[in-house]
Amino acid sequence: MRYGMVIDLARCVGCGACTIACRGQNGTPAGINFNKMKKYEVGTYPSAKMKAIPMPCMHCDNPPCLKVCPTKATVKHENGIVTIDTDLCIGCRACIIACPYDSRQFIWKMNNYYENQNETPFEKHQYKKYQKGTVVKCVFCIDRVNEGLEPACVHTCLAGARIFGDLDDPESEVSRLIADHGGVAFKAEIGTEPCVYYING
């Protein structure tokens, strides 16, 4: 069992629903984005195109972040998901330096979404999960996945651009899409063995 994701860039419209669904699901403090949406353009006028690429954690099979973590706060689960044990994190940020995908963020302080305002009841309730001075990142909504649901970003995607499944199973939709569309992983050449593949990019 090795969970992975396929992101169909031909379908992605860069709306950011995934980013916000993630925020709602994980209740992250302001400034923390588990799922980043990079917008860019290619080509020159008049044949330019607007593009977007969502960047969740790649949940590498050979994760550099896990290697540099001195306290083993970063763990790779049997299902392939890479998570951080907040209670073990010392906040050294070596993993952020090591990650080639900018997938990790440090909680410099617990920011409220409404600036210069107190934390809302939602924030008060959800921020309990997070500690200032620790590193956080996308966890493939591991709680949802353990319940048999797909991650929030996949669930909410308007375009059906995200597909989640078992990379070890050659019959799974993700495996088939990677095979049929020539899925590529980001910066695979440096040996991180990412579990997030992009197709039709």
């Binding site: 950011g16 709602g24 939602f122 309730h125 669930h155």
Partner: peptide, 23 residues
């Protein structure tokens, strides 16, 4: 506390998906 608003699976018209505003 309201902790999450998500699309409702299997129900038209959005069939579980939800846009950034809805989220």
């Amino acid at each position: 506390v309201v902790t999450r608003v998500e699309g409702r699976d299997g129900v038209p018209p959005n069939y579980g998906s939800l846009c950034p505003r809805g989220n």
